[in-house]
Design a protein around this nucleic acid. Sequence first.
DNA 1: ATGCCTCAGCTCCTGAGA
Length: 258
Amino acid sequence: MKLATWNVNSLTVRLPQVLEWLQSQEANGPIDVLALQELKMSDDKFPADAFTQIGYHAQWFGQKTYNGVALISRTQGAAVVKNIPDFQDDMSRVIAATYGDVRVIGAYFPNGQAPDSDKFAYKMRWLDALREWVKAEMTQHPQLVLMGDYNITFDDLDVWDPVALAGTIHCTPQERAQLQALVDLGLHDSFRLFAQTEKSFSWWDYRDFGFRRNRGLRIDHILISQALKEKASACVIDKLPRKNERPSDHTPVVLSLA
DNA sequence: ATGCCTCAGCTCCTGAGA
């Protein structure tokens, strides 16, 4: 089984790249579930037929202009949940579904903008609510994956210039404590279960040749429960889509399970 | 230096992203 996450920064612009990428993966084991973030489209604009035509099902939770998430899958998902239950939110950030006996949560975590902003306070509240919900989900689903654009780096290994970016958004102690609190529920950062090259990132700024200079951050993560950790065989960042014409600023992360 | 890209939208500028 293969799981992947990709913040596409507008599915309208990136749809051809997503379809091409999914088809390019077929040869070495197809992606079973792909979580997408930042669709930036309303539900009625979602291109469900395009995914059907390449053999995929989809569940989506869109929003005009901002946010929007989807799960693209080879089998139909069950028990679909949109956003965090009991957390009032006017932004479409979370979609969950069950495939076989694996619970998959795809999420677009708030950016937070700056540590002293209202958006940062919202990010903290949202993370509190997410953690409580995921904790409850884990009691129901031993095999659980929480993947998406976390907008948080684990540590300095995930930052191209940890000195210059110390304490800035995605790198604050408060955000990292929230990420650790998710880990403390019994989740594992699947990427670090395996040997990785130094300066592995999942996002690069469009500006100033960020990708060419490898000035990036690792902020897209696939966290897995203990039961799935025992099945994990590889986790890689696929940098190829970042080299496309009109790329997303994020690139896919892929987890392989036995 | 608050911009260097990119995207969406009450679109020829602005807000947001990270």
